[in-house]
């Protein structure tokens, strides 16, 4: 009985052409028993940053509250919105503060960062439960279905996908990976972030 697999759940983020996508399943379980089919693991941080928190469900809620507080404090002190790169460091240091009694969460971040020329650059990152960051150029995965997600994403992802194609790629990757994992599934939610809007879609999945 691993504490990382107690409640189940998975998150994936992908880079596209001037856009990013982040998606998760909706299951909350107690080992093999399903409790809820509508447990959100992805939360908006700013208009252009989304944070996924797969892992122990009590820490999902606790960390969500903690990051909301810390980002609000940052926004007030700096009088500007936090950038994805900065937010990733904030996540990392928050987790490392609990190095010897960690939160059992492996966060995944996706966002668009401002470039000096005024454009936007896709940004994704993931961390382990003590805050070791992984900045990837293609995709990042976490959760109980992470090994399956790696395999499917490796096969389906390609560079410079447009928002609609990226949505299709990330949705198919997640749906097919969680069907092979008993602890993830029960529906999915997908967010596609572009420079002027975020499109959120809820997907139906297998309910077994």
């Amino acid at each position: 009985m691993s504490i990382m697999e107690l409640n189940g759940g998975s998150v994936i983020a992908m880079v596209g052409k001037d856009c990013v996508a982040i998606a998760s399943d909706l299951r909350l379980g107690n080992q093999a028993l399903g409790i809820s089919a509508n447990f959100q693991k992805i939360f908006p941080v700013t208009d252009r940053i989304y944070l996924g928190l797969p892992g122990l469900a009590t820490d999902v809620t606790t960390l969500r509250e903690r990051f909301r507080f810390r980002v609000n404090m940052y926004t007030i002190k700096e009088e500007r919105e936090i950038e994805p790169e900065t937010f990733a460091r904030l996540v990392s240091s928050t987790l490392y503060e609990h190095r010897f009694g960690p939160y059992f969460i492996e966060p995944v971040m996706a966002g668009l960062s401002k470039t000096p020329s005024g454009g936007y650059k896709p940004f994704i990152a993931a961390a382990d439960l003590i805050g070791c960051l992984n900045f990837a150029k293609d995709f990042v995965v976490a959760g109980t279905a992470s090994s399956k997600l790696y395999g499917v994403a490796e096969g389906l992802w390609e560079p410079d996908l447009e928002p609609e194609d990226l949505f299709e790629t990330i949705s198919q990757t997640l749906l097919n990976a969680v069907d092979r994992d008993a602890y993830s599934g029960w529906g999915c939610v997908v967010h596609v972030i572009t420079k002027d809007k975020v499109v959120t879609r809820t997907l139906k999945g297998r309910m077994d």
């Binding site: 409640n7 909350l28 107690n30 028993l33 399903g34 409790i35 809820s36 509508n38 447990f39 122990l56 469900a57 009590t58 809620t61 606790t62």
Partner: peptide, 25 residues
């Protein structure tokens, strides 16, 4: 709201605790 001793909380249309939950859910 379904809440367990770890502090896991979720809003549900129906919920149960204990051995009866395996049958009732």
């Amino acid at each position: 709201y379904w809440v367990d001793y770890l502090g896991t909380m979720t809003e549900v249309p129906f919920g149960a605790h204990g051995y009866g939950s395996y049958f009732a859910l």
